[in-house]
């Protein structure tokens, strides 16, 4: 078997084998990109609801009874953990799966419920290599496979559309874009 046939075989077989891994790293990569840029939090979903306490409050007046009233109003009695005052004007009540912030002077309450975002939190768990152990070695194997897929991909087609023609130009563009952006952001 000639080297081109071997090359095609490597590209095809590794492509099939690592399809799932590419999807995992591709989707979680986009999510983490925007997480780092602080556009979006892929790990959690927050839902905020505004409510009103009947009247206003003063820090010195707040006691367990006040907390009970707020928990009744928000329907979160079962989820209560602890409370404290982040500053003179706010009361923070911690709940299992969220919190309530009360603006003491106006009685305005905001109930925030927090839960893990399905699928993305699991994908991020893998992308960040939280499992460690065997996952480290399998993802290393994938990374090595990805390099082989990329190199074998360059040599897949010969002629005008291959690496010596249009393919070569596209390859150079694909290398130059990250290089130029790196120079721009890191050194200019």
């Amino acid at each position: 078997m000639g080297w081109r046939k071997w090359n095609r075989w490597i590209h095809r077989e590794l492509g099939f084998l690592f399809f799932g891994m590419t999807i995992i790293y591709g989707i979680s990569g986009i999510a983490l990109n925007h997480s780092v840029a602080r556009h979006w939090n892929p790990g959690i979903i927050t839902n905020a609801t505004s409510m009103q306490y009947p009247g206003t409050l003063q820090k010195s007046e707040v006691d367990r009874n006040t907390i009970e009233i707020i928990l009744d109003l928000t329907g979160e009695k079962e989820n209560y953990k602890q409370y404290y005052f982040p500053d003179q004007d706010h009361l923070m009540i911690y709940l299992k799966g969220g919190h309530i912030i009360v603006e003491l002077q106006t009685g305005e309450m905001q109930l925030t419920k927090i839960r893990n975002r399905p699928v993305f939190s699991e994908l991020n768990y893998l992308h960040y290599n939280k499992p460690k152990k065997l996952w480290t070695w399998f993802s290393d194997l994938y990374a090595f496979g990805l390099i082989l897929i990329a190199i074998s991909g360059l040599l897949l087609i010969k002629g005008k559309k291959g690496i010596t023609g249009r393919g070569g130009i596209l390859t150079i563009i694909g290398i130059l874009i990250p290089l130029v952006l790196l120079i721009f952001y890191l050194w200019l």
């Binding site: 959690i44 953990k81 602890q82 911690y94 709940l95 299992k96 799966g97 919190h99 927090i114 939280k130």
Partner: peptide
């Protein structure tokens, strides 16, 4: 320790 979970908020 890899990270702290949000569930720790409000816990001692």
């Amino acid at each position: 320790i890899d990270e702290f979970k949000i569930e720790l908020e409000g816990s001692t």
